[in-house]
């Protein structure tokens, strides 16, 4: 089975694909034929399907999981029970036949950075039974200390506003923070201190080391009119140019999007709380209230498979329903 499989029209992500095709706002966005296999409608079944496909490979795969934008505390019309849908997402993780090595959470754990919101999120996420690596979203830095609550809870061993790196299974993982000190009129921001750290962090690595970079706001410019991008993201990526395989995982925009540029694959995950509109299809990026029955088709988790020696990582986006 080819891992360069094109998603069928049945499995294509209708709302996301619709928005992009209609807008044509990113010509370089490639939905198929990029080497990334992803399935929107198969739920766990397609995850298992890919698992079987990968099992045929001679090399053992590293599987990890991404969840994002759980917004615990959100209770508005778009989803009155964000805690409940996070619980469903975690339940789905527990049913995966192949247990992921760990989970990354790409930010907006809480809605308003309240202790109870973090407590509730932690309580549910730990039920997944795997280690979790966090980066903050802008909603996680709303305490009086402007991020102190997040750092106290999740930032042990991290640098600055919470960035760090680690190695797992031959892959170097880099967790970046681009939601601090945002400038008026601007986008996400990494800042000079973090960029210097990043340059040093990868300086000693052989170019053959696969890199996975994750941060809350997309590191690539998705839609600047809504602030969906990172002002100094290109500078960060310039330090990673020499590496043969770079995967960038983000959240923030509450929908699946991906593109491939050279050796870099970009991917954004769904939220577990509420969807947001495709770029430019609504007056604002505010929570999208869907007709009854549609919500859980637009929430979900992402499973990432990495096979040593293969080109990009295989990412499967699994909705909570549908």
């Amino acid at each position: 089975m080819s891992r360069h499989e094109r998603p069928s029209s049945e499995t294509a992500p209708r709302p996301d694909a619709d928005g992009i095709d209609r807008r044509g706002f990113l010509e370089c966005m490639t939905w198929a034929g990029t080497g990334i296999l992803w399935s929107m409608s198969g739920g766990v079944a397609s995850g298992v399907g890919l698992g079987r496909a990968l099992a045929a490979e001679p090399v053992k795969a590293l599987t990890f999981l991404q969840i994002s934008d759980s917004h615990v505390g959100f209770d508005k019309a778009a989803n009155p029970d964000a805690l409940g849908t996070l619980r469903e997402a975690v339940a789905r993780i527990r049913t995966l036949k192949e247990k992921p090595a760990f989970m990354i959470h790409t930010g907006d754990i809480s809605h308003l950075s309240k202790d109870k919101e973090f407590d509730d999120a932690d309580q549910i996420i730990k039920e997944a039974g795997i280690p979790v690596f966090y980066v903050p979203g802008e909603h996680d830095l709303l305490d009086d200390g402007q991020g102190k609550a997040y750092l106290d809870r999740y930032g042990k061993g991290a640098k600055g506003a919470g960035w760090y790196s680690y190695d797992h299974g031959g892959v170097h993982f880099i967790a970046l923070v681009n939601v601090v000190n945002l400038k008026a009129g601007g986008l996400g921001n990494l800042g000079v201190e973090q960029l210097e750290w990043l340059e040093n962090d990868v300086a000693g690595l052989p170019s053959s080391t696969p890199l996975v970079v994750f941060a809350h706001i997309p590191l690539w410019t998705v839609y600047p009119e809504w602030g969906w991008g990172t002002a100094d993201g290109l500078e960060a990526l310039s330090y990673l140019k020499r590496f043969g395989s770079v995967t960038v995982l983000n959240g923030h925009i509450h929908q699946v999007m991906q593109k491939v540029e050279g050796n870099v694959s970009f991917h954004t995950a769904r939220s577990t709380a509420f969807p947001q509109p495709a770029p430019g299809t609504a007056p604002s990026p505010g929570p999208l209230k869907l007709p009854a029955g549609e919500l859980k088709k637009n929430l979900g988790i992402a499973t990432v498979n990495f096979v040593r020696g293969s080109e990009p990582l295989a990412i499967i986006d699994t909705p909570l329903e549908g």
Binding site: E138, L142, L182, K183, A184, G186, P224
Partner: peptide, 9 residues
Amino acid sequence: SYFCSLHPH
């Protein structure tokens, strides 16, 4: 001149 620090656009 002011802005929203969460959504600086």
